[in-house]
Amino acid sequence: MAGAASFTTTTLLFVLLSQTAFTAAASIGNFLRDFDITWGNNGRAKIMNDGNLLQLSLDQKSGSGFQSKNQYLFGKIDMKMKLVPGNSAGTVTAYYLSSQGPEQDEIDFEFLGNLSGQPYTLHTNVFTRGKGNREQQFHLWFDPAADFHTYSILWNPQQIVWSVDGVPIRVFDNLEKRGVLYPNSRLMRVYSSLWNADEWATRGGLVKTDWSKAPFVASYSGFNADACVWHPAAGSSTCANGRSSNGWFGEEMDATGLQRLKWVRKNYMVYNYCTDPKRFPHGLPPECSTGF
């Protein structure tokens, strides 16, 4: 599948029949089982409620973060999150998939905090072989700090779709035939972190973190991964051949999803790199010609 420009019937048959191919395994998540706390000592990261709830916190000394134990190559990843309430200016809550190494593949949700009463900015990006600069930003149609909402990444050989509560907000198609790099060969883990970025996060760094409001806390629940899971001991993964839950692997956005995407772009998009020609004096990136 590495380097494939599009999903084909031959590719599907290979995936379903090969004993060593990457294949899908649905997993209802438990934070004790599925994640490791990676930074933020002295209880800044906590797993609670028998592994069904995780909290990250940030104070003036340190933020905190976690990563998945499993690595994936394609999948549909869901996470319920409740963001830092009140004055969250200067803080960033990041939730993303990333490979390891200096030329990483990465698919990002980043929530940029703001003053009380102002909307969060949802910053999205995609990196392939270390190349990013594909930022799109949105405001949301609800307060993401008031309750849990589901943030999803669908990543398959055809496209990447970012969704919020099942509503697609962004799509990045596989356009390798046109010379656009696409993340389809590197294993990725799920990561999240809560950290201070007041040099740029809120109004370009004009609004700084108010440490009197610390600790800042973000909460997580409802992790679900229907994904191709890599088993390092075996050097492969094993699939449940032909299961209906594998449908995400060949999924592409339908007409209803496209209409919802257009609604989000019309009403809630606040920045799109594809409409910022000053950043690209030699011409917009080729994927911009798709309109998304």
Rank of each mutant, 00 (worst) to 15 (best):
M1L: 14
G3V: 10
A5W: 07
S6N: 05
T8H: 01
T11F: 13
L16T: 09
L16F: 07
L17T: 13
S18P: 06
T20E: 11
A21H: 11
F22I: 14
A25R: 04
A25T: 12
L32F: 10
D34T: 07
D36I: 14
D36G: 12
D36K: 12
N42I: 12
N42S: 12
R44W: 11
M48N: 07
N49R: 13
S57D: 05
S57E: 06
D59V: 13
Q60M: 14
Q60Y: 13
S62M: 14
G63F: 10
F66W: 09
S68F: 09
K69I: 14
N70K: 15
N70V: 11
Y72P: 04
G75R: 03
K76V: 13
I77K: 04
M79K: 10
M79R: 04
M79T: 06
K82A: 02
K82W: 05
P85H: 00
S88Y: 03
L97W: 00
S98L: 10
P102L: 03
P102E: 03
E106D: 09
E106M: 09
F109D: 00
E110F: 09
F111M: 08
L112V: 08
L112P: 00
L112K: 02
G113Q: 03
L115H: 03
L115Q: 11
G117T: 11
P119E: 07
L122W: 04
N125W: 03
V126D: 07
T128L: 01
N133S: 15
Q136L: 13
H139C: 08
A145V: 09
A145S: 13
H149M: 11
T150A: 11
Y151I: 07
L154Y: 06
W155R: 02
W155Y: 06
Q159N: 02
V161I: 15
G166H: 01
V167A: 07
V167N: 02
P168H: 01
R170Q: 05
V171Q: 08
F172M: 10
L175T: 00
L175Y: 01
E176Q: 15
G179Y: 05
S185F: 03
S185P: 04
L187I: 10
Y191E: 06
Y191Q: 12
Y191L: 15
S192V: 02
S193D: 10
L194R: 00
A197I: 01
W200T: 09
R203S: 10
G205W: 09
G205C: 12
G205V: 10
G205I: 05
L206P: 06
W211S: 02
A214N: 02
A218Q: 01
S219W: 11
S221I: 15
F223S: 02
A225V: 08
W230I: 06
H231D: 14
P232V: 06
P232D: 08
A233F: 14
G235Q: 05
S236H: 09
S237P: 01
A240M: 05
G242E: 09
G242M: 01
F249C: 06
E251V: 15
E252D: 03
L258I: 12
W263H: 08
Y268M: 14
Y268P: 07
Y268N: 10
V270T: 15
Y273Q: 13
Y273L: 06
Y273G: 15
P277L: 03
H282K: 15
P286Y: 08
G291C: 03
F292Q: 02
